[in-house]
Amino acid sequence: MAGRAVTSESRRSTVGAGPSAGSARKTVAAAAEARRFSIAVSRLLFEVIDRRRAIGHLGDVVSPAVADQVGVLVRHDAFRIVDPASPLTQAPVGTVLQRVHVQMCDISAAEIFGSYAAGARVRAFAGRIERKPCRVRGPREPGTRRSLGQVEYRWQLVALEFH
């Protein structure tokens, strides 16, 4: 037999060589959190694109560059599709989010991609989310000023493309 024989002792030594249980839990928790955030921000994004919400609703969940990009798309009616079946009303057809997929890069970054329906067409989008530090106000103690000393890490959409 060319190679090392696998014994129960060698199996035990390789089991502990992988990531620790704490690290695995962090990865699973980050993936679940990233998925929830991706779905929520995608829904919000398409509501803004359809003008069901104002661009101000995007707030801090998208980077300033993405907010500017979406603002330009909305201003120029880039997603406006008129239903050809109703030529009298010329009612615009909305965009509908269909699927969202998340591929983790590490516990603080993920690539997202998915599909949406715009009229009779199905199109794709892709983006990147990252955990960014965000200063938050601490609890207010009686007689003291509230400080911005605490930092929380929150997900933010930092890149976005439509295809």
Rank of each mutant, 00 (worst) to 15 (best):
A2W: 10
R4Y: 11
V6K: 09
V6W: 08
S10P: 07
S13Y: 10
S13A: 12
T14D: 09
A17V: 00
G18P: 09
S20L: 08
S20Y: 06
A21M: 12
S23E: 15
A24S: 12
A24P: 01
R25A: 07
T27L: 01
V28F: 10
V28R: 04
V28I: 07
V28S: 08
A29G: 12
A31M: 15
A32H: 13
E33Q: 13
A34Y: 11
A34G: 11
R36H: 08
F37H: 08
S38E: 09
I39A: 15
I39E: 15
V41K: 07
S42T: 13
L45F: 08
V48H: 05
D50K: 04
R53E: 06
I55R: 04
I55G: 09
G56A: 00
L58P: 02
S63P: 04
S63F: 00
A67E: 02
Q69F: 06
V70W: 13
V72A: 06
V72R: 14
V74C: 02
D77H: 12
R80K: 14
R80E: 09
I81T: 11
I81H: 11
V82S: 08
D83I: 03
P84G: 02
P87F: 01
P87V: 04
Q90H: 10
Q90F: 08
A91T: 15
A91Q: 15
P92F: 00
G94S: 08
G94L: 10
L97W: 06
Q98V: 02
Q98G: 03
Q98H: 05
R99E: 14
V102L: 00
M104W: 01
I107Q: 12
S108W: 08
A109G: 09
G114H: 02
G114Y: 00
G114N: 04
Y116L: 05
A117S: 09
A118H: 13
A118M: 13
A120N: 11
R121M: 02
R123Y: 00
A124V: 00
F125A: 03
F125I: 00
F125L: 03
R128L: 06
I129V: 15
I129L: 09
R131P: 11
V136K: 13
R137F: 09
G138W: 06
R140S: 09
E141K: 11
E141V: 13
T144M: 05
S147W: 03
V151H: 08
E152G: 01
L157E: 05
L157T: 01
A159D: 09
A159F: 00
L160M: 10
E161S: 14
H163F: 03
H163D: 11
H163A: 14
